[in-house]
């Protein structure tokens, strides 16, 4: 066989393999989506979205999951806000204040990579220890703090990789005009990277809102609607967990419905924040 033929076969074979792999990824996503929609959609009704669970328990199967919807939204928004407050400045600091191959920056990045790999149940346990230390009971606030820790690594690293792509010239120009690094970071670099930073924040939110293990000890559970930072809240992931764990098919279906609701909540928050911030994107240099 001539060399040309071999190369063409190689090219085609690789193409087929890649097509298969990509199709598999999309397929897995579609199957999951379909499962949740098919199993969850029949249970989706207004009562589910607007009521608390009947007689204070998911196992009874009546009422709705409003307590968990509100709890998850409050918890995730609070945690994402807190994580963003820490993570975005850290990412800006690494990229604007430190040099490219700074050891300190490498250390920070490495720490976040390690934190990223830690399972969420460990964050839950860690949050629990802190709660005991401060004599706190499980509450919305404890949940927010724990989830913020959970979101921090992924959010910071995502923002970091976006900021790394901002051209160095932009930083040079701002500094050459006599701007401080602070002004450069927040007035120029942040603006330029804003759409990417928003994505980083949403990635963090996605991780935070869907996590069950970290909130189990820290946010606790309640059937009432969240009213105070210092009282326990219900969350959607735990609602899914408890309901799918029951032996009753009817309640299990409500578990799938809760999963569907969780997905819709994430979708809604993503779309809403994209629309809200669309006008900022016009100012980005391409």
């Amino acid at each position: 066989m001539s060399k040309i033929n071999k190369r063409i076969i190689e090219e085609k074979a690789f193409k087929i393999v890649m097509h298969t792999v990509c199709a598999a990824v999309v397929l897995i996503f579609l199957i999951m989506l379909a499962t949740i929609v098919i199993k969850g959609l029949p249970g989706l009704n207004l009562k589910m979205l607007t009521h608390q669970p009947l007689r204070g328990s998911y196992a009874e199967g009546g009422g709705g999951i409003l307590n968990a919807i509100l709890g998850s939204v409050y918890l995730a928004l609070g945690a994402t806000f807190l994580a963003g407050l820490i993570g975005i400045p850290v990412a800006l600091f690494i990229n604007v204040y430190l040099k490219k191959n700074s050891r300190f920056a490498t250390l920070i990045r490495f720490s976040f990579d390690v934190l990223w790999g830690i399972p969420s149940i460990v964050y839950g346990a860690f949050g629990f220890i802190i709660m005991i230390f401060f004599h706190m009971r499980s509450s919305l606030l404890a949940g927010i703090i724990t989830i913020a820790f959970l979101e921090l690594p992924i959010m910071t690293r995502a923002a970091d990789s976006i900021l790394k792509m901002v051209p160095l010239e932009l930083k040079e120009i701002s500094l050459s005009l006599g701007a401080t690094r602070f002004e450069t970071a927040f007035r120029i670099i942040f603006k330029q990277a804003f759409p990417g930073i928003l994505t980083a924040i949403l990635i963090g939110l996605g991780r935070g809102i869907g996590d069950a293990a970290a909130v189990m000890f820290t946010a606790g559970y309640t059937d009432s609607l969240p009213t105070s930072l210092f009282r326990p809240v219900a969350t959607l992931p735990l609602a899914i967990f408890y309901q799918l764990g029951t032996p009753f098919p009817e309640v299990q279906q409500r578990g799938y419905t809760s999963a569907l609701v969780l997905m819709l909540v994430i979708l809604f928050i993503s779309i809403f924040s994209r629309i809200l911030t669309k006008r900022f994107q016009q100012n980005v240099l391409r």
Partner: peptide
Amino acid sequence: PQKPFPLP
């Protein structure tokens, strides 16, 4: 600069 770089 070498390449015109407007601020965003």
